[in-house]
Design a protein around this nucleic acid. Structure first.
Lengths: 280, 280
DNA sequence: GTCCATCTGTGCGAATTCTCACAACGAGAT
DNA sequence: ATCTCGTTGTGAGAATTCGCACAGATGGAC
């Protein structure tokens, strides 16, 4: 049995479509189709039903995929072990962080990291979707809450508060009872800063909902209303002015997360230390 | 990371040499060498030291091999699951058995099995070395004692006794105090039939030691001395005559062994049932 | 309806990979 | 000493595999 064939089949089983599996494996979708067909031939067992617009696993295929799935996990464990084995500081390291943190607090300071360790190549992923450290989509991650996945080690390395910001002109001309607001869309309704904003807004209007914090800031700058922004974003922007309100301010913790297997890797330690200084 | 590269590296780590790994994987040794080199290149990590006459794992290589080893086990589990998934009775099935059992009790009757299930292809391995059912070197195995490996299911399906045999002429002309004996070599000193023979021989001479029971039988036929042979071998041979001695006879049980994962596979059940009738 | 995005299937040329044959070398047996 | 067996290394040709470009088809948005 060809292991690569099996790898492609497992990717197909996991992702659901040839194309998604192909993206996942960084190959052409045709290759996935061919390898799955080759696996079926070598096992003399039908694993998928080829429907006009989709591949569907047969019962046998589902069973095989379930049994073979641990191979994927082990393969990732091997990759982590490899990364951990690398003694020198050099090569590529991937950092995942919420976009705003990545843009404002990390990216501008990366030049210093390059200066400290010239051999290093940094890949910074600013994504809302939390990258999986288990699957080695990233070596290090910044998160706003303590992760619960097993195998991950998290350290609280920072804290930041939110405040309401609007354009100076808007704040000067608009009475508080007429404030309009900019918020995340409803998928973020559980986030503390969103609840905080909603409670303060009460019955006043939400004029814009967007998932992107930069968009919220941009909207607030134009004078459309008030947005809840991290202070590290709002204070640095001359086109935004803080509007203080009473009560307990809301804030989020910043956690630095690393997989247990990579904890001791020199490069990971170096970069983790650097990120801590960024947030100090 | 290429899974096939990893597979080749794991085989090398397990087998110790390029050539042995190549045999194990049914490829050329050059292929193993290249794939291991490719793996090292893609991981940027040295896994083996290339010495003039051997490959030796580096510390990193040992660690990686240990971590990746479960992949091999899972791959075998997949193969077993595939075999178990095959609904019809057809295709190849591998049976492992001690050579004498294979030759005398199984092989002559296989024609009947073919008759019952024309689609079946049988691979009968008569080896002293017990094939690993876990690694799917065989689907079914006959053993002379209950196996202890986890995951295996064993049923006692037979019992046979040993007796001493020599050529009729030898037994007629030789007084018991002058008997000479044919035995297994010392690697079999723990086997019940060997201990039984040795105790009876006491100080009398062992003139031939051979691992192969057929050789023992052939030697006994020529009149060199007495050999401890299964009755199913000795009684059927007109050139051999039993020499009864007092005391408890020695015998061995016959166990039919199958991996838990294959227990319910139709073809395995069919062949297992057939083998039981062979020994009934 | 039309457009657009997404998915799978096909044919072909290019790149890669494998096997084969041969070589060199050392260990152990005779 | 010689022979045989098993090991790794090298080079070349053959076989395989892959990616690309394009096609067809479907569902959703407008």
């Amino acid at each position: 049995m060809d292991w690569t064939d099996l790898q492609h089949f497992l990717a197909l089983a996991r992702e659901g479509t040839l194309s998604a599996a192909a993206r996942n494996l960084n190959v052409d979708h045709v290759t996935v189709a061919r390898r799955v067909a080759a696996l079926e031939a070598s096992l003399s067992l039908k694993l998928v039903d080829r429907r006009p617009r989709s591949y569907e696993l047969t019962e046998d295929g589902k069973r095989i995929a379930k049994i073979g799935d641990p191979m994927t996990e082990t393969a990732f464990a091997v990759e982590r072990a490899v990364q951990a084995s690398k003694s020198g500081i050099g090569g590529e390291i991937t950092i995942s962080a919420p976009p705003s943190l990545a843009n404002v607090l990390i990216a501008p300071k990366l030049i210093r990291l390059r200066h400290l360790h010239p051999g290093i190549r940094i890949k910074l992923i600013g994504e809302k979707r939390t990258a999986s450290l288990n699957r080695r989509e990233a070596d290090l991650a910044l998160r706003l809450s303590r992760p619960t996945e097993p195998g991950l080690i998290a350290r609280k390395i920072g804290y930041f508060e939110f405040a309401l910001y609007g354009s100076p002109d808007y704040l000067k001309t608009t009475p508080p009872h007429a404030f309009a607001f900019v918020a995340y869309d409803s998928s973020m309704d559980d986030a503390p800063q969103q609840r905080w904003l909603m409670r303060f807004a009460a019955s006043r209007e939400i004029v814009l909902r967007t998932n992107d914090l930069e968009n919220q800031a941009a909207a607030a700058r134009t004078g459309i209303g008030l947005a809840a922004l991290p202070k590290f974003l709002g204070e640095a922007d001359p086109q935004l002015q803080r509007h203080d309100i009473g009560g307990r301010p809301v804030g989020r913790e910043v956690w630095l997360v690393v997989h247990r297997d990579l904890r001791r890797a020199p490069m990971v330690r170096a970069v983790a230390g650097f990120i801590e200084t960024c947030l100090a």
